[in-house]
Amino acid sequence: MDIENTTPALVLESVVKEHAAGPSRVAAVRDASLHIARGEIVVVCGESGAGKSSLLQVAGCLQSPTRGAVYVDGCDVAGLGVNGSADLRRRRIGFVFQEYNLMSALTARENVALPLELDGVRRADRQAHAALQEVGIADLAGRFPEEMSGGQRQRVAIARALIGPRRLVIADEPTGALDSASSRVVRETLVERARQHGAGVLVGTHDREWLSVADRVLEMSDGVLSHATRGPE
């Protein structure tokens, strides 16, 4: 894979994320540092409550760290402000969640095209159709989320996450509610995006099948991110 831009997709430097718990504060993420190159797939495993979701939300600029620094595609998130962070999320970061987060009043094509339309991109519907074709459900472009299965809705969510020049894809339990066939499609699609399009991919999951496609596997326990190990050859 030839990636001209060697800027890392994601850099976390000594990130701490604390949440209020009554009069005290609880650290969900403790001094986490992480570097993800473009084209690299990193999988974070851990039990529920280990801090995976908090880590991914900070990495994806959905939450601000209590301390530490976050860089996405070379941009220091702390210096962007609220509007700049929103623009960064919309243009450079793709999100895939177990809950799909699709808009029920929009068709599959409209859900996928929405990030581009918000930026005034011409022919966003054509790009949306191509993205749906990439995940194998172009024939469902005119359906609403309630008219699709869970696996089909997740494919729509992935198409939306991958449309446009995304540099980083964050996936939080993307296959947790899917059958084995749909899970395989999700994994293959994200691997393709990393390998062929040069996006960094960060996955938080209980699904051990992800270990077979990861470049690195990390463990998270009590908010502590372990040293990285290579994925299976």
Rank of each mutant, 00 (worst) to 15 (best):
W210P: 02
A78L: 07
V43C: 11
A128D: 06
K52T: 13
T229Q: 15
D179I: 07
R143G: 07
T107W: 13
V203R: 00
A28P: 02
L190N: 04
G81A: 11
A177C: 06
V70Y: 01
A59L: 08
M220H: 13
A78V: 07
V191L: 15
L202R: 05
S221I: 09
A20W: 05
R30S: 02
G120F: 08
L80K: 09
A69N: 15
T107K: 14
R155P: 10
G198L: 01
V186S: 08
G49T: 04
Q63E: 15
S183E: 12
A199T: 06
S182I: 11
A69T: 15
S64V: 03
A214P: 08
G39N: 05
G60W: 00
S221C: 11
P65V: 06
A78C: 05
E4D: 12
R109P: 02
M103Y: 10
R109D: 10
R160V: 06
N83R: 13
A50P: 09
I137D: 05
I3Q: 12
R91H: 09
V16L: 04
A228W: 01
E99H: 13
E47A: 15
L178R: 04
G74T: 07
L190C: 09
L116W: 04
L102D: 00
R153A: 02
E110T: 12
G74E: 02
E147K: 08
T205V: 02
G150M: 03
E188I: 04
G200W: 05
W210E: 01
Q133F: 01
G176W: 03
L10H: 11
L106P: 12
L225G: 12
L56N: 10
I3K: 14
A181N: 13
D172Y: 02
I163W: 08
R184S: 14
I93H: 07
V121I: 14
S64N: 13
E233H: 09
L88T: 03
G60C: 01
D76F: 04
T6Q: 10
R67L: 14
G39T: 07
L102Y: 00
R187F: 13
I41H: 05
L190F: 12
E13F: 07
V121M: 11
P65I: 10
R89I: 10
S48E: 14
A161C: 11
N83F: 06
R216W: 14
R160H: 04
G79R: 14
D87R: 14
G84D: 08
M148V: 07
G94P: 04
R187N: 08
S226P: 10
G84H: 04
V121G: 09
G136K: 11
R166S: 01
G231H: 10
N111S: 12
G51Q: 06
K17V: 09
A130P: 01
V44E: 02
A9K: 12
A131E: 09
R216N: 15
G68D: 04
Q154W: 03
V16M: 02
E99W: 05
L116V: 06
S226W: 11
R25N: 06
F95I: 12
A128H: 02
V77A: 14
L34Q: 05
T205E: 01
S33K: 00
G22W: 00
E110N: 13
R126W: 00
F95E: 08
L88M: 06
P23D: 10
L132Q: 05
D207F: 00
A86R: 10
G84T: 07
L140G: 00
R126N: 06
N83L: 13
S221A: 14
A199M: 06
F144K: 14
G204A: 15
T7Y: 01
L140W: 00
L34D: 04
Q98V: 00
A78F: 02
